[in-house]
């Protein structure tokens, strides 16, 4: 019994981790239609920032977050603005340009931080459950609460505020939104800021959960693309559900079938859901 409760906790913390990795990508893609393949590299940048601050100034997670967020917002704005200012811009163009940016960033990291693998060493606090047989670590709690907080915050913004509703309208149909008088460039700017905040939160946690390496950005980018495809544009709550589903699928598969099956099963789950969604979408449109 304890094993399964522990597995359940691991699943949800992993799912929350995936959600945090995907949030910035999903926001930028929804608002600007840019497929940012340098997304993972920006998460790694935020991770490196936190790593340096932790190493040089002994800063903890909460102290590094504002600095990592500020740097992420600025760097995301630079990347996205650069792509938006291209004369010929389609989703395919954005894919190629951001892929180039990702390669440039990887080489910059290699020159600056070397090819060494790095982690942020942290002493987790543990909270015991079920008479001490099950535990949840402080990092797992951060992952779950921060992902819930970010999704909850965005939900309130989208549903309860005027600017959030304008942003939602831009995501749903930017031409109709423009005709209704919503300033699209400002909405894009807002999308970039929110995306940058999400990346700034994900980076320092990434360095605590996984590891930093100049070429490590590809993993979070792939997770982000999968979850965004699964959730669809602007469907932030579905993103969290997708992250949790992926976390549960991967963890339980690895436990019952073995680690070698985890990617296969999670890919199958996503394919089935995408087919199901497509079929439902077709039914609704008829």
């Amino acid at each position: 019994m304890e094993q399964f409760v522990q597995l359940f906790i691991q699943s949800f913390s992993l799912g929350s981790f995936y959600t945090l990795l995907a949030l910035g990508f999903a926001l930028v893609f929804s608002v600007t239609h840019i497929l940012n393949l340098a997304h993972g590299e920006l998460i790694i940048l935020a991770g490196y920032v936190a790593y340096v601050l932790e190493q040089k100034l002994s800063m903890g997670l909460w102290e590094t977050l504002p600095i990592a967020i500020a740097i992420s917002v600025v760097s995301l704005m630079v990347v996205v603005s650069f792509v938006l200012h291209q004369r010929r811009l389609s989703e395919l163009h954005s894919l190629i340009i951001t892929f180039g940016i990702a390669l440039i960033l990887q080489n910059c990291y290699l020159g600056t931080f070397s090819a060494n693998y790095r982690i942020i060493f942290h002493k987790s606090r543990y909270f015991s459950l079920l008479g001490g047989h099950v535990f949840i670590s402080s990092v797992q709690l951060y992952l779950i609460t921060l992902s819930l907080g970010a999704i909850g915050g965005l939900y309130i913004l989208f549903r309860k505020t005027f600017i959030g509703k304008a942003l939602r309208a831009t995501i749903q149909d930017r031409f109709a939104a423009q005709m209704a008088g919503i300033p699209i460039p400002r909405m894009q700017l807002l999308g970039m800021v929110l995306g940058g905040i999400a990346i700034g939160i994900a980076g320092p946690l990434y360095a605590r959960v996984s590891y930093l390496h100049p070429a490590a950005g590809i993993e979070p980018t792939i997770e982000a693309i999968i979850l965004t495809l699964f959730a669809g544009m602007g469907r932030i709550r579905i993103l969290l559900a997708g992250g949790w589903l992926l976390g549960v699928a991967e963890t339980t598969t690895a436990y019952f079938l073995g680690s070698q099956w985890r990617e296969f099963v999670s890919a199958m789950v996503l394919v089935v859901i995408l087919i199901f969604r497509e079929a439902r979408g077709r039914e609704n449109s008829v």
Partner: peptide, 9 residues
């Protein structure tokens, strides 16, 4: 697979 973020199972 190399680069897996979770080995808890």
């Amino acid at each position: 697979r190399a680069g897996q973020p979770d080995f808890s199972p």
